[in-house]
Design a protein around this nucleic acid. Sequence first.
DNA 1: AACCGGATTCAAAGCGCTTTGAAGCACTGC
DNA 2: GCAGTGCTTCAAAGCGCTTTGAATCCGGTT
Lengths: 376, 376
Amino acid sequence: MPPRRSAFDGQCFPCLGLPTELKAYCVPHHMNLKQLSKTLGLSQTTVSRALNGYPEVSAATRIRIEKAARDHNYTPNIRARSLATGQALAIGHVIPVATRNEIMNPVFADFISGAATTYSKHGYELLLSLVEDGDEEATYRKLKSRASVDGVMIHSPQMVDPRVSLLKEIGLPFAVHGRVSTLETPYCWLDVNNRAAFRRATDYLLDLGHRRIALINGIETQDFAYQRRSGFQDAMAARGLPIDPALMRANEMTEEIGYRAIREMLALPRPPTAVMTSSMITAIGTRRGIEDAGLIMGRDVSVLTHDDELSYFQNGGETPIFTSTRSSVREAGRRLAEHLIYHINHPDDPPPQELLDADLRVGKSTGPVPATRIAS
Amino acid sequence: MPPRRSAFDGQCFPCLGLPTELKAYCVPHHMNLKQLSKTLGLSQTTVSRALNGYPEVSAATRIRIEKAARDHNYTPNIRARSLATGQALAIGHVIPVATRNEIMNPVFADFISGAATTYSKHGYELLLSLVEDGDEEATYRKLKSRASVDGVMIHSPQMVDPRVSLLKEIGLPFAVHGRVSTLETPYCWLDVNNRAAFRRATDYLLDLGHRRIALINGIETQDFAYQRRSGFQDAMAARGLPIDPALMRANEMTEEIGYRAIREMLALPRPPTAVMTSSMITAIGTRRGIEDAGLIMGRDVSVLTHDDELSYFQNGGETPIFTSTRSSVREAGRRLAEHLIYHINHPDDPPPQELLDADLRVGKSTGPVPATRIAS
DNA sequence: AACCGGATTCAAAGCGCTTTGAAGCACTGC
DNA sequence: GCAGTGCTTCAAAGCGCTTTGAATCCGGTT
């Protein structure tokens, strides 16, 4: 049996701590609309309208109200507002806490900090739900039935992703960071043109004379990883070149994995002359592997990576270290958040979709095939 | 001028998309209390009480109500509830997004996922605010005046931390993960006994015969780092041993920093025989540095680290790799969240405080001073 | 002088829930 | 037969806000 609580009644936290006989002295420190309008000698309607920017308030009154609001440090109680409007003014991010905690994926961190910028610009809050594997569905349902959020953001979409149909079923608006390629129906997404970007990047390496090109990819049930491999394959196929399975990896994108992969590949009878990786972090491991093998990146082995422009893993300054397909994940967060909010507020419009182009940016990590290997 | 919105009126998102003439057919999919009690032929009062576990409901009625709630998938609208109770049922985490984004600090990730467990157990939500440096104060004030949260969690407390007095001033309950040692007044915190742990750990190394012990610490404006250094110094001083400033570092706790630090120290005329680090991540870098120098960890150089039991950086299995002072940061998150919620609901009680003991766990990374160096 | 219409302002209803204070009910004991 | 007593249940008020529909004001017309 939970303890019984009485309503807030205007008392602030410090006052709640006062002995009972003194509580009467607690004048609410936090102005509410009723107080404010009484102070001003106006109705709540007028004050509310003035502060929300509606036109039917005279200029003089508006100025007076705005000043008073500032002076008394008034901010509308968001819970009350959302009850009245039916909007939660919050966006949910549901993160599975598997063995590998998605929350400290640096891509996630940058994306979310971009999205947060947009949220706060529009007065939305960010609700973070960390859930054990398997509780995800229940969490989405609860978010909906409690009316905790107006919509949710979907991270790391898979090739086949059950979340999309679930959310459509329960009627919770959502936006996908990436895409679910297997899906036909329209939904809100923002993605990088991974396939085209990797095709172009592969072409770039091919033009430099490389033929044995390795791909150290992310796990290929993830949509983006699948797309990148397709782009890679497209480019190779277009020139009628075979792909050596020994030069293809699909795994988590850690430094260590990048290191091991390149070490193993360099130990092959016919090692690659160029490597493409799906993440800066893997690329950094790759560089370490190349150096540890006594080779020089950009001369002996070329490295081309996708660069999410993570704030934590900058790709050099003016002259980038790694040649890369480049697209800011933070910017993606900002933009997709705009789309989601638009989608929430315009349910009748077709859901916003956006495909960003990743530009190819040449750095110091790529160069022509070393003369010694041209034969191979 | 913002678009005008009408209240929710029971329509769900898919129905909002229907052409106007069909909207009337939208029976609210999401049961609310009024509907539910009408269905049951009971008053809202009774239903509410039954579901909230109050005693004044007959057993038979309660069972009937609970069944109906389950059948209709009813969950109370959390916004309405919190308006009525005056509780927000949410906890805020305010994270500064500086150049180095705190959000992807693995310690933060584990702590927050521990805390989230507790939150959801108690029906609280987790509100994440990412703020630019300098906007922190404004954010806390806004959280308070909008009544968005019942309390906030303070991460990475500094030796002198302005957040504590700010929160006391605005009357927002808080809990500190760590402590602010300079502070006298009582507040809610949970900390590891860093000083004692590092003193004991140092003693352990001293007992193994080590005399030249290095400390690769976190930035020492952070309270925990200061405490650890104090513990280290205490132990050295207690045996009348001098500390070589060349063996003390205080920096971010990355792998790279650990690597560089040990490489530099091993290049000294009198290199250390043992190293203490403040984080597993630094320790991993240290190990790499030792190996790259052609030495063997645990034989040539001992390494002792603090182990937060991060899910992402496990310290081996049954037989740990690193000897460590050990305390689960995830467990800390769980417990401190309990404390914060208690504190919020019992403002008259003294704020909960807890000091966890970090146990010393012997692994393979430490051993007696190598014979060749005993002389030094 | 009465009337009109646009510009302002307002009182009241309602969002979905909790909680207060009171009422209904079936017994018990006198 | 009636007040007294628990045990259940209820109607209504209120949380702080938005929004509807109506009222008021005021200068300009008729």
